[in-house]
Design a protein around this nucleic acid. Structure first.
Lengths: 126, 126
DNA sequence: TTTGTTAATGCAACAAGGTTGCGTTATATT
DNA sequence: AATATAACGCAACCTTGTTGCATTAACAAA
């Protein structure tokens, strides 16, 4: 990827992800920042941050695109494959830090896997 | 769910899923049957078949909705939780018949999980 | 500090998957 | 055959996300 300039939008978006560990949907970011930045800009910055290995994205339920910080990824390789947890009560999504081991499947080659777990998060589970 | 009438649309759609075990996206069904039935009808029939426990649905990559036959589900309970495999070469999606065991997560309650595995299918993996 | 290159932005229009309202048709029941 | 109502077709709409293009602003070099 090309040079990334430190613009207001990049700064603000990065800050969103640096202040907590949860994933944030593009939709939520647009709702929150849409008055300050054009939605096109937000989509493009997220895209670029993903290309640069700073964020990773995945699809949550309802087909929404979610973003979260990467750990140890580069622009060359997104090695950050882990499950995501979506709370059915409050909607919050976060990254789980364990690795799910998949069985080998005969005659198939696994390249990517996406595991979305849904239920009640720590706050909502009492 | 209410009574389900044996209409042409129901008959044709059911037949699509009965002749093979692969999953089919709503989009593909509309492309294939859109001249015969209105897309609204197709969406509604799929919806109803899912409610009745005959089909189950999940989201594939790109946020498309996919449907496949259920095994042993009723309209009360969709017990059919299994991984889905999407081939990155030919696009084909099918249901894998094994169960992935998830570790318990402290202070959270797991209710649903969706595992999408991507790679090369049996046909494309040589 | 001014200049110049080009990445980044805003805007408007668009794309695609899916949904809704409503008047009409057809299935199943009596 | 008459009736109730599920299912249908159509058009219009909604939402998330994308594209083209003219304008603005980072940033490096002079």
């Amino acid at each position: 990827m090309g040079v990334i300039r430190k613009t207001k939008a990049v700064e603000v978006l990065l800050n969103e992800f640096n202040t907590s560990d949860v994933a944030i949907s593009a939709k939520a970011l647009i709702k929150q920042l849409g008055d300050t930045f054009n939605k096109t800009t937000i989509y493009r910055v997220l895209d670029k941050l993903e290309d640069d290995g700073i964020l990773h994205s995945f699809l949550g339920k309802e087909g929404l695109k979610w973003y979260a910080k990467c750990n140890g990824c580069t622009s060359k390789e997104h090695k950050d494959v882990h499950p995501h947890f979506q709370c059915l009560s409050c909607g919050r999504v976060d990254c789980l830090s364990f690795t799910v081991l998949l069985p080998q499947i005969p005659n198939r080659k696994i390249e990517v896997s996406q595991l979305l777990i849904q239920g009640k998060c720590e706050e909502c589970f009492v």
